[in-house]
Design a protein around this nucleic acid. Structure first.
Lengths: 260, 260
DNA sequence: AACAGGGGTCGGCATTGTCGAACGACGCTC
DNA sequence: GAGCGTCGTTCGACAATGCCGACCCCTGTT
């Protein structure tokens, strides 16, 4: 039997986490056999794990259909994570001001599993209906936040670099070499942009939030309609770039100061 | 050795969940020995679980201090839970309207471990700064949401009924018998109130959201300053009570209709 | 009425996680 | 600055633990 390199990754916990991820990915309820088939585990095994997860409130079971879904306890854990998260805490003050000054929505994100996790979101300051995106996961290569995180984060692993890039609009960067080139440009100029590469009609500008050592621990972006955020060359307006970069620097300073 | 009544609650997963709860309760970072002492487990055991939780992103370790805290993956799971949660989905439409009509903040909650979990929160429609309370856990006996859930939920277990009620202000109901009496009144009138029992200066009115069978699966409340929400007898204004009850009934109907 | 498909249960086996002691690093005190 | 205490981490042995796969029951369908 294969023996793990590092000792003691608790198998059942890994499996439980895989089940939770599966339930989160397929938004909706999943049956026992679906889960056991997806993870290639025996039904009985999955059932035992599910019952345990249910008893601690991490999953719930629909009594009529018998299907499983995520449980309420996770919501509380997630919000507790936000309370502890230092990046978010430091970004709170500055992002409000940034949204007010630019008149656009502001989002703060961090890297997770080569995707971008939104940890803070300030609505565009107008009366329009907007949905809170905190907790959402975005593909890194298709949004301004992600590009900055890729550019200033650790180098991608072999496995990551060989995965194809998914396209979302006609201008999403799907060519790996083109992306590498753009990330170089991002490093040179110190900020990233994204014009209709994720959502049609939307553009964004992002800058890195760096902790001691220079590695990016997060990013902050301003996002809004292309016609407001960009000039007539479809390039982000300089004032927005400047303001995002200022906010990012301010937060970086606070993060550094808090620990050193 | 004690043998569990139902077979197969996976021990390591229960322990992992206990660790996560501990990390959530003590907001902040915890050391390995603190955790192992709190749960009365061997250091090595806790370490193995923590490493596994870390590898799946449920906890993070501060590289400088070595202490552990909740991880980013939980945020995503929590927000995924919100996506699936049917109570919240149905409440979305009605709570916005309720907030607009009453001019006050609206919250929707559900029962969890004999406390109240906030699953939706609409800010009071003015420019004041408010913090999102989704994911927060409140004591059931001290808020309007909780009283409704207690009144229309399953009867409390022996263990629950013998726990003392914590006081938060001078008027918090801390006497178990007084609470029972008030819950009876809530059942009679179909709604609950709370005047400065949780936060000084704040009052709230709540009504039950019931699924098929009549059991409350959630509750919705309007919350605001006492002087706005109540009349000069410090009783909630009738118009607010009516509106909350209407919203609750509408959501209940949708929930029932969705399944039957 | 028979069948298919779902969730749930059970007991035996060996894999798996647990324990406790020992290690190395750090920081504090004297 | 040497010693001590504390903390996170590693390791190996043991056996308790959780895993597997066959079996059961129920519901809905053909």
């Amino acid at each position: 039997m294969y023996r793990a390199a590092v000792p003691g990754p608790v198998q059942s916990i890994e499996r439980a986490a895989a089940i939770l991820r599966l339930l989160a990915a397929r938004s909706g309820r999943l049956g026992l056999v679906e889960i056991s088939a997806s993870l290639d585990l025996a039904k009985g095994t999955v059932h035992g794990i599910l019952r345990t997860l249910q008893s601690v409130g991490f999953v719930e079971q629909d009594p009529t259909s018998g299907k499983y879904q995520l449980g309420a306890a996770l919501l509380h854990l997630g919000s507790s994570y936000l309370d502890v998260n230092e990046l978010r805490a430091r970004a709170l003050n500055w992002s409000d001001a940034l949204a007010a000054r630019t008149g656009e929505a502001v989002r703060v994100g961090t890297s997770m599993d080569s995707r971008v996790l939104i940890v803070h979101h300030v609505f565009r300051p107008d009366e329009s209906l907007q949905t809170l995106e905190v907790g959402n996961l975005l593909p890194a290569h298709a949004c301004a936040l992600g590009k900055v995180l890729l550019a200033y984060g650790p180098a991608p692993t072999r496995a990551q670099a060989s995965q194809p890039l998914e396209g979302f609009t006609r201008v999403t960067v799907v060519d790996r070499r083109a992306l590498t080139q753009e990330l170089g440009r991002v490093r040179e100029q110190g900020w990233s942009q994204e014009v209709e590469e994720w959502q049609p009609g939307e553009a964004a500008v992002a800058a890195p939030i760096r902790a001691y050592g220079g590695l990016a621990v997060g990013a902050i972006e301003v996002r809004g309609a292309v016609e407001r955020l960009c000039d007539y060359h479809r390039q982000p307006k300089t004032e927005h770039v400047t303001r995002v970069r200022e906010a990012a620097r301010a937060i970086s300073r606070e993060l550094g100061a808090a620990r050193w």
